[in-house]
Design a binder for these strands. Sequence first.
DNA 1: CAAGGTGTATGAAGGGCATAATACACGTAT
DNA 2: ATACGTGTATTATGCCCTTCATACACCTTG
Lengths: 148, 148
Amino acid sequence: MNTNEGWTEVAFNGRDPVYLQVIRLFKERIATGRLQPGQQIPSRREAAAALKINLNTAQRAYKEMEEQRLIVTEGNSPSRITQDAGVLRAIRSELLGSAVGGFVAAIRNLDVPVEELLELVRREYETVRRQDDKQDKKPGIEQGRGDE
Amino acid sequence: MNTNEGWTEVAFNGRDPVYLQVIRLFKERIATGRLQPGQQIPSRREAAAALKINLNTAQRAYKEMEEQRLIVTEGNSPSRITQDAGVLRAIRSELLGSAVGGFVAAIRNLDVPVEELLELVRREYETVRRQDDKQDKKPGIEQGRGDE
DNA sequence: CAAGGTGTATGAAGGGCATAATACACGTAT
DNA sequence: ATACGTGTATTATGCCCTTCATACACCTTG
């Protein structure tokens, strides 16, 4: 019954398309080992319910994940995480690379001394990771979009 | 005639709303001193033409910049950069803070060792800034190329 | 005065995204 | 066989963003 591993308390930002955020969510789970190669993932309907999104949106995310070879589906049984080593290895570096690239692109025109920049990142990173540690304790059931 | 300081060859990403990217463009120009407090900025129509966007989109960006007190407009004369010290001071830290915050949020779930992370940022940052230097060499401004 | 440049406003059109509501074919467990 | 859960489509509605095309009031310049 409980294909739900930890899908509650997922927050979407109001700017990026939801289906892309779902894909990134899966990539993160895969990259960190929370989802293992060959492991079954929630059905489209389960995921839609758990993430509180529409079935069509979940389907769109899954469909694109299949095109990216992230997941595989045979027949009408639940989809599974790929076992393709190349794809798996690429995930983490892709997430990391696009994040770093986007960040640098965002501040490249600001003339920030590199050391100051790194210090800001370090401080924020450690702050956030401390918060994550606290969060891990409670079984929150909260969710919603971060619209402002 | 040449209210155009360097508005050509501005590239927009296909994800964020254009009017928001325009606002960020102005904020960067202000933060780095390329736009000075009190300085006149291009008219809506000029900006739209230079940035190759619609007048309405430019107007929307300008309108929101006025609500954010970034620019001021009196009567029907060209808008000018604010001289409000508080607003001016906030710009850089806002750009920097949101960039850092977004970046860390993007990689917070990846379990990346902080030193590795910082090294990636440093390398990418220096790479990109080297590219900027090359670009800065040519003072002549020819028409940029339309992307598509 | 007439012309041209301002800021400003409006309506129509289209694309992308998300949602809702069904619908169908396929398996499996009861 | 019935029921249920899969994956997969389809149609419609609505919102946001962008573009195109006008339009008006104001001021300055010729």
